[in-house]
C-alpha cells in the first residue's frame, strides 16, 4: 500500500458519501438542474460484484476486505435508493445512454484480452473494463441537461480523482517494485481520460464559484 493508493481509495469513499449525502439531503436523485444517472450507479454495483468474487477466498488485509464489503454494500444501497425509495424522482427518459453497449463491449473484450481464462479472472477483467466506461451514462446526462449542481460536480471530481491517483500509484509501484498490470493501466488511463473535459470545466468554473455549465 502507498499513499497515492490510500488517498485514491479515500477519494472513492468520499465520492460515495457525497452521492449519499446529496440523495438524502434533496431526498431525490434529481436536483434543480442536475440528475444522477441510475445506469451509472447500476454499472458500478455490477463492477464491484464482478470484481470482488474473491472476497472470501483471497484475503489481502483487513483494510482490503473492509473496503470491498463497503463498496459492494454502498453501491447496492444507492441502486436500492434510486430504484425504490426515490423512484418518483428518477426519470429514465433522461438516462438515455445505451448501457448495454458498454456492458457488451466490456464482456467481449474481457473474453479476449485477459490474464487467465478462468471464470473469476474473466469476471475481474470485465469489471476493470466496465469501470472504465461506467461513468459515461452520467457524463452523457450532464451534456443533455447542460449544467449540474455544485454537489454533483464535487461527486464527479472525487470520482475522477480516485482513478487519476491510481495512475500515480501504478507509476510509483512500477518504479519501486516493477509492478506491471497492462489491463488496469490502460483501462485506468481511459477512465481518467473521460474526465478530462469535466476537470477542465470544474477547475476553470466551479472552483471560481461559477455555475457548472457546459459551453
Amino acid at each position: 500500500m502507498n499513499l497515492f493508493r490510500l488517498v485514491a481509495d479515500l477519494m472513492h469513499l468520499v465520492s460515495i458519501f457525497i452521492l449519499l449525502l446529496k440523495m438524502q439531503k434533496t431526498r431525490s436523485v434529481a436536483g434543480r438542474c442536475s440528475r444522477i444517472s441510475f445506469k451509472t450507479q447500476a454499472l458500478y454495483a455490477t463492477v464491484f460484484l464482478t470484481r470482488y468474487t474473491d472476497l472470501f477466498a483471497n484475503f489481502q488485509s483487513l483494510y482490503n476486505t473492509t473496503m470491498k464489503v463497503f463498496f459492494i454494500a454502498s453501491s447496492l444501497y444507492i441502486v436500492f435508493l434510486m430504484k425504490f425509495k426515490f423512484k418518483a424522482t428518477n426519470d429514465p427518459r433522461l438516462d438515455t445512454f445505451k448501457a448495454q453497449y458498454v456492458v457488451g463491449g466490456a464482456a467481449a473484450l474481457a473474453l479476449i484480452v485477459n490474464y487467465a481464462f478462468t471464470v473469476q479472472e474473466v469476471l475481474w477483467t470485465f469489471s476493470i473494463y466496465l469501470e472504465a466506461v461506467a461513468i459515461l451514462p452520467q457524463l452523457f446526462m450532464l451534456t443533455k441537461t447542460g449544467e449540474a449542481e455544485v454537489i454533483t460536480t464535487h461527486y464527479l471530481f472525487a470520482l475522477g480523482t480516485y482513478r487519476g491517483l491510481y495512475l500515480v500509484n501504478w507509476i510509483y509501484r512500477y518504479w519501486t517494485e516493477y509492478y506491471v498490470d497492462w489491463i488496469v493501466w490502460i483501462a485506468g488511463a481511459v477512465q481518467t481520460g473521460l474526465y478530462c473535459d469535466f476537470f477542465y470545466i470544474y477547475f476553470t468554473k466551479v472552483l471560481k464559484g461559477a455555475k457548472f455549465e457546459l459551453p
Binding site: 493508493r5 481509495d9 472513492h12 474473491d54 483471497n58 489481502q60 482490503n64 473496503m67 470491498k68 463498496f71 490474464y115 487467465a116 481464462f117 479472472e121 475481474w124 491510481y166 500509484n169 488496469v184
Partner: peptide, 10 residues
C-alpha cells in the same frame, strides 16, 4: 502470459 493473477488492489 497466463498467470494466476492475485489482485491485491481494490
Amino acid at each position: 502470459e497466463p498467470k494466476e493473477a492475485i489482485h491485491d488492489e481494490l
